[in-house]
């Protein structure tokens, strides 16, 4: 297996995630895009772990950790989104501009 393949797939996934984060209005969609980016990283970690034959399996272990952290992040993120929704009745990012220059 050429390492280039998983690396390129991961790069494309990451870029798509970037686009989603930058272009989507809905906060939940933005969270999904963040998940895409995290998965791109995961793919990289696994591929390089396989390529380097790490005896500690640090790549795969780290992937597990990232998955766990991603789950926690989604939980916290959704809680924040819900809190914002409760107070503002909106979760569109470009409508949450209270910190902008008036």
């Amino acid at each position: 297996m050429h390492v280039v393949y998983p690396a390129v797939v991961a790069a494309l996934l990451f870029s798509i995630g970037v686009y989603g984060v930058l272009a989507r209005r809905n906060t939940i969609l933005v969270l999904m895009s963040v998940e895409l980016m995290l998965n791109a990283v995961n793919l990289n970690l696994v591929a390089f772990d396989v390529w380097l034959r790490d005896v500690l399996h640090s790549g795969q272990v780290l992937t597990l950790f990232v998955i766990v952290i991603a789950a926690a992040e989604v939980g916290i993120g959704l809680a924040i989104v819900l809190a914002v929704f409760r107070t503002r009745k909106a979760i569109e990012l470009d409508r949450l501009r209270e910190l902008g220059e008036p």
Partner: peptide, 16 residues
């Protein structure tokens, strides 16, 4: 200062 419009996405775009 028009850039400082509070839209976090714009900021992230600039950052990236």
């Amino acid at each position: 200062r028009h850039l400082q419009n509070g839209n976090a996405q714009l900021y992230v775009t600039g950052l990236l």
